[in-house]
């Protein structure tokens, strides 16, 4: 069997998800047994000129050049995977959309602003068709492997639509609300095995909102715990600002 030709590309991001994959450890050997990595800037110098079977894309789209680039990649690959929060849901880059484009360009580039055209931040699926989505900041490796298996088997693999709380309870963590801390677990999509909470952190909502969130109910919860709605809206915006693009469409 010919192993699928796989490549990794990045757009606006911290490249942390690539680092996760490169640091996969022992499992990486099994993964490399199943796929043929032909281009991956962070770990190898080879380039591939032909078609890809799969392109893994990290990062969000923030410039006109990036729009052209992602369209070219889409044309060269049979399957496209958006991995990491920036690619999957826009991620922290979405915070750019809180400001006017002109203002933000000036603030970053000063007098050279005109040399740097910019566009509103978009998640990959808001620009080209995406076949698999792996949200997370960074990606949760078992999920990356699960998606890879689904791809190899030719099966769909949607992001789970349950709240992080579901997995968190299965792990028997102490609820962070009992510590008086606002955690985004109740409205964030599961699939990470409540990774952050297992390690004493809160859920930052990096995997995106569940499909049918009870926003009103969530606000009531904050009130009951005397937590400010602005606080949680800000927390949610940190990763999910680009979600507004989906609602507009």
């Amino acid at each position: 069997m010919n192993k699928p030709k796989v490549s990794f590309f990045d757009f606006a991001c911290c490249e942390g998800c690539q680092l996760q994959i490169a640091n996969m450890g022992e499992l990486l050997l099994d993964v490399l047994g199943a796929i043929d990595v032909v281009e991956f800037r962070e770990v190898m110098s080879e380039k591939w000129v032909g078609e890809f079977d799969v392109v893994f894309v990290e990062g969000s789209i923030t410039t006109p050049q990036a729009i052209e680039h992602i369209k070219r990649l889409r044309a060269r690959t049979k399957t496209l995977v958006a991995y990491g929060s920036c690619a999957a849901i826009g991620g922290v880059n979405g915070m750019k959309n809180n400001y006017k484009l002109e203002d933000i360009r000036k603030s970053v580039y000063g007098k050279d602003a005109n040399f740097f055209p910019t566009v509103e931040t978009k998640a990959i699926h808001q620009v080209v068709k995406v076949d698999y989505v792996i949200p997370g900041c960074p990606v949760y490796l078992p999920e990356v492997v699960a998606v890879l298996k689904a791809f190899l088997a030719g099966l769909p693999r949607p992001v789970p639509d349950n709240a992080v709380c579901v997995e968190c309870k299965l792990n028997e963590n102490i609820c962070l609300y009992e510590r008086g801390v606002a955690c985004l677990g109740p409205i964030t999509r599961a699939g990470c095995n409540s990774w952050c909470i297992n390690h004493g952190n809160i859920c930052y909502g990096c995997r995106g909102l569940v499909s049918n969130p009870n926003t009103k109910g969530a606000k009531d919860i904050l009130e009951k715990y005397s937590l400010s709605v602005d606080l949680i809206a800000n927390k949610m915006n940190m990763y999910n600002k680009c979600g507004e693009n989906d609602n507009r469409e």
Binding site: A146, A153, A163, K169, G217, I221
Partner: peptide
């Protein structure tokens, strides 16, 4: 309700489950 599922996961008499296949690589 925000449908977080806490009430059923912690319930001593709730037993509903999903059946899932997990292939190796």
């Amino acid at each position: 309700c925000v449908a977080c599922g806490n009430c059923t996961n912690v319930c001593p008499s709730c037993y509903c489950f999903d059946v899932i296949d997990e292939p190796n690589l």
